[in-house]
Each structure stands twice: as C-alpha cells, then as structure tokens.
Simulated assay, not measured.
Amino acid sequence: MDVHVRDLRYFVAVAEELSFTRAAHRLFIAQPSLSKQIRRLETSLQVALFERDHRAVALTAAGAALLPQAQRIIEQWAVAQSAVFDAVTAQHTTLKVGFHTRIGRGLIPHVTARMATSLPGWKLLFRQVPWSDPTVGLSSGEVDVAIAWLPIPDDGEYSWKVVASEERWVALPAGHRLAPRTVVPLGELADEPFVALPRSAGPLREFWLGNDQRPAPARVVAEAETAEESLEAVASGLGVVLLSAGNAEIYQRDDIVYRPVTGLSPCELAVAWRAKDDRRAVHVVVEACTRCLCGESGTASSAG
C-alpha cells in the first residue's frame, strides 16, 4: 500500500508531541482515528514506529529514522503545492477569499478598491466555506485568504491579524421566552437547546457554544454546516445559536430576534493566510482588511 502525505503528517504530529492525545488535538481529529491511521502506516511499512504503554509514547529506532525523512517530504510537498498554485494564480490573477459567515462591515468594497489601485487587472473571488473546515479553506488550498472567526488551528501553518472584536449575541426564535429581554445573561441559556457547528470545527465549535465560559457544556440538539442553516434551525424553534454583534445586524430577519449576552468574552474576526505565502496580492488584501476596520494597524498574531 502506498503511503500518503496525510499519513506522514499524522506520524510527525505523534512523533513531535509524543502523545496521541495532544497530536489528535493538534490535528483536529479523534484520537481513535489517529491511532488507527498510525497502525495502518506501521502495517504498510511492516515495522513498529512507536513504543506505547499506559504512561508514555516513545519512538522506536525505525520511527526515529523515519521522522526527519517524513518532515522533509511534507515540506517538499508544501513547496510543490505552492509552486503549482503560484503558477495557476499568476495565469489567472485571481485571489480567492474564504468566509464562514457574510463578511459585511464595509470590507468587500474597501478591499476591492484597494486591489484595483494596487494590483490593476487582479480580481477577488469570494467563496463560502462550511463550518466543518476551521481553516476556512486555507488548509485545502481552496482559498488564498480567509475572513475567519478565531480560533483557527494554531499549528504554525497560518498567520492572521485581528480586524474586529465584537460582543457575542444570541439568536432566538421570535416568540422565545427570552425575546422580551434587552440583554440575556449567560446563565439564562444554561438549559437552552443549541444548534452547533460540526464536530470537525474543533475549538471553534466549543467557542460558539459558549463552552469556554460555561460551568457545564451546552445541550446540543442539532448541527449546521453554515450560518444560514443554523438560523433556519433557530427560526423553526429547534434551538438557539450564538453569533457576533456584527452578524446580528447583517442577518436581520423577521422570525429571529438577537440579544447581547452578558458573561461571555468578545469574539474576534481576523484576516488569515498561509504563513509561507508571501505573494504581494495576499498582503495587499491583508493590509486592506486591517486598515478598513482597524485604521492603520491591527493586532497581529502568528501561529507557531
């Protein structure tokens, strides 16, 4: 059986973390799935790569020999992908921008105008990405830049700048018992059914359930792949969802009411890109997003 780059990424994560639990968290996959993939790799290579017991994980001699080679292959594959992507982009002069929720906030006209001035002939293509991809299309190469709600995977592959900080609000069916309130304390949502992001969204799912600041996890009754799906579920009375204050304005509709929630930290909207992508077009978009919402400077963060 041929070994895939994904298999090597899984192996490298476990080898670097020396923990299946930490590696699974880093990769945003379930630990049993990671263990199964590593066993398949060992079967393919016909050698044990790790020594395992209940307390520790260690590399075997074969694993230690494979590690630098696997790291090199992964890096070379990333370079090859970048070269192919650069060639296609240079031909079409199109930059793809990913988003989970409607962008709004004046960003699109501002960034489009900036591109027209700085890079005449270039165009922006906006693509909505399902919540199931917490990198908003960056990991697959589907997009070049993402307008992303934090957190995104912090594995050294991505850089970002925070461009907006907004309160978290709750979306309620128009006839909900809390709809008459002007403000909703987090405690009042303790027993409410929630519509969640898919499990593959990882920490982003937990954040938009408010689990980062709840004494007990939210009661999840359904999952939604997009903001539009989640709001349809709210309107039908299936459950409630958290969203940003800005999106409460953007997604106004007659069958849903939005209320600010006290007891929750703000959410952060960022412009994100692959850390190794140094193309001028990428940085023009990043700068335009930052200047539009933050003035001359934003809060820069880099995963690593």
Score class of each variant (00 low, 15 high):
L204I: 05
V286Y: 02
W169D: 02
E268R: 03
T112P: 01
P151C: 02
R40I: 05
S302L: 10
A87G: 02
S44N: 13
E287V: 00
A90I: 06
M115W: 02
Y10N: 14
T262N: 07
P120K: 09
W149E: 01
E296N: 11
L138G: 06
S44K: 14
E157W: 06
K36M: 08
L293V: 09
G295H: 07
S118T: 10
H92R: 15
S301D: 00
Y258E: 01
V170Q: 01
L238W: 05
G98T: 04
A58Q: 15
P185Q: 11
E188H: 06
A64S: 15
A300I: 02
L238M: 14
E287K: 12
V162D: 00
T262F: 12
I103D: 10
Q81F: 11
V5G: 07
R219H: 14
T299V: 05
A70V: 10
R214L: 13
W208D: 08
L107C: 09
W122D: 03
E192T: 09
A83E: 11
A30E: 14
R40N: 13
A78L: 13
P266Q: 13
G187E: 12
S301E: 10
R102K: 13
D53E: 00
G104M: 05
F126Q: 04
A222D: 10
H283W: 08
V47D: 15
M115A: 04
V145G: 06
E16T: 03
R219I: 13
E225S: 05
Y10W: 14
A116S: 14
T89M: 11
V286I: 12
T101L: 12
P217Y: 12
W160E: 06
Q46S: 15
R127Q: 14
A218C: 11
W208L: 12
A218E: 12
L178D: 07
L197G: 05
S236T: 03
L27K: 10
L150M: 03
A218I: 13
T60R: 11
Y251M: 07
A248N: 00
A196Q: 08
L49A: 08
I38Y: 04
A24M: 11
V84G: 07
G298C: 07
Q71N: 13
P260E: 02
L269Q: 04
L150I: 02
S159H: 00
T299F: 07
Q71H: 09
S140F: 03
Q81E: 14
A171H: 04
R253C: 00
P185A: 06
I256C: 10
S44D: 14
E166V: 04
A196V: 03
R22S: 13
A222Q: 06
L124K: 02
T101V: 13
T135W: 00
L150W: 00
G121F: 02
L119I: 06
W122L: 07
V143P: 03
P173D: 01
A13W: 08
T89F: 01
S297F: 03
F194L: 06
H25M: 12
S301K: 06
P134A: 01
I152A: 05
E228I: 01
P203R: 10
I74A: 11
S33D: 06
I29G: 09
T93H: 09
E42Y: 08
A196K: 06
V97E: 09
R72P: 01
V47M: 15
I152K: 01
V183G: 03
F20V: 03
T117Q: 13
L189M: 07
A218N: 12
G263W: 04
D277C: 10
I74P: 10
Q46R: 15
Y251G: 00
V14F: 09
E232R: 15
G137Y: 00
L119T: 07
S297I: 05
